[in-house]
C-alpha cells in the first residue's frame, strides 16, 4: 500500500512562556524550539507499521521552508522511503485551507492508497486539515482515528467519540485518515538512525511544479486572517469556593455544568 503522510513543523509552545510579537498578529517565536507536530509523529509511525505489514511505500511531505528538512529526515529515519518539501516564497502565510490546497495539488500528481496525517496541529489548533484535504481530493475522510485495519481496497477504522465511546467505520480507499495521538507508540529515533538516511535527497517542489496560482496559496489563498492575538488574562491561582462542603460542591457542580464539565 502506498501511503503519503502529511506532516507539519510547529513551535513547541506547550511548555514555553509565550509573548506577543510587536505586530500583535503572532507570538514571538525567536526562543522557541521547533519540532514535528506531535500528532503527525503518530501518523508517520502508523504509516510505517502498515507498510511493514502490507508492503508498499511511505512518503512524507510537508509545506515548509528548508528548516523543515530536518523533520522530514527524521521521518525517513522512522522508516519512510521518500520525502518532499513543498516550498515557494508565495506559500508564506498559508492558513489551513491554503495548506490543504497546496498538498491537494501535490497529491493529485501522485498515486496513493492512503493519506495519513495528525488530527490536530499544536500551533493553529484547527483540526481542519485532513477533512479539507479529503474534500479537495474527493475522497472519504476519518479523523481522530485510533485504530486502522487494512482490508482489500478498504480500511476499517475506529474513531474516538466522547466518554469512552468509539465508532467503527468502513472506508473505501483511497482515503484520508487523521490519526489520534496514542494510536501507536512511535519508535525512538536515534542520532545514528538519522545519520543513516543523511544521503537520501529530499526534493523541494515549488508552486510552478504544483501548477498553482499565486492567488490560491499563502495569505492570498487563505480563507481566514488573524486580526490580532493576545494572551488570555492570567488567573492568580484558583478562586476558592467558600461555604460548607455541600454548598461548595453545589456551586462547583454549576461551574462544571457551565464550563462543559458534564458530558
Amino acid at each position: 500500500m502506498d501511503i503519503i503522510v502529511c506532516v507539519k513543523r510547529v513551535p513547541d509552545t506547550s511548555e514555553a512562556d509565550l509573548a506577543i510579537d510587536k505586530g500583535g498578529k503572532d507570538i514571538q517565536k525567536g526562543g522557541l524550539d521547533y519540532d514535528i507536530n506531535d500528532w503527525d509523529r503518530f501518523a508517520i509511525e502508523e504509516a510505517v507499521l502498515i507498510k511493514e505489514k502490507t508492503g508498499g511505500k511511505v512518503t512524507v511531505v510537508t509545506v515548509g521552508d528548508e528548516d523543515a528538512e530536518e523533520m522530514l529526515r527524521e521521518g525517513l529515519a522512522r522508516g519512510a522511503d521518500e520525502a518532499f518539501l513543498l516550498w515557494d516564497e508565495s506559500f508564506e502565510g498559508s492558513d489551513g485551507y491554503a495548506t490543504a490546497h497546496i498538498l491537494a495539488a501535490f497529491l493529485k500528481q501522485r498515486s496513493y492508497d492512503l493519506v495519513l496525517t495528525g488530527t490536530l496541529a499544536d500551533d493553529d489548533c484547527g483540526g481542519q486539515f485532513g477533512g479539507m484535504l479529503a474534500a479537495m481530493l474527493g475522497v472519504p475522510v476519518a479523523t481522530l482515528v485510533h485504530k486502522i485495519e487494512v482490508k482489500n481496497g478498504s480500511i476499517t477504522v475506529r474513531r474516538e467519540l466522547e466518554a469512552g465511546l468509539s465508532e467503527r467505520l468502513d472506508i473505501d480507499l483511497p482515503a484520508v485518515v487523521s490519526v489520534a495521538t496514542g494510536i501507536n507508540e512511535p519508535r525512538f529515533v536515534s542520532i545514528r538512525a538519522v545519520r543513516k538516511v543523511a544521503s537520501i535527497e529530499i526534493p523541494t517542489v515549488d508552486r510552478g511544479e504544483l501548477g498553482l496560482d499565486e492567488a490560491d496559496v499563502g495569505s492570498a489563498g487563505a480563507k481566514v486572517e488573524i486580526e490580532k492575538v493576545f494572551l488570555p488574562p492570567e488567573g492568580e491561582g484558583a478562586e476558592i469556593i467558600a461555604g460548607s462542603p455541600a454548598d461548595a460542591a453545589a456551586r462547583l457542580a454549576e461551574i462544571l455544568k457551565e464550563k462543559g464539565g458534564i458530558a
Binding site: 522512522r78 525512538f188 536515534s190
Partner: peptide, 14 residues
C-alpha cells in the same frame, strides 16, 4: 535503540 525500541517513558527525556 537502533531498532527504535526504547521505553516510552525514556524517549521524552532523551
Amino acid at each position: 535503540v537502533e531498532q527504535g525500541e526504547m521505553p516510552v517513558s525514556l524517549q521524552k527525556p532523551l
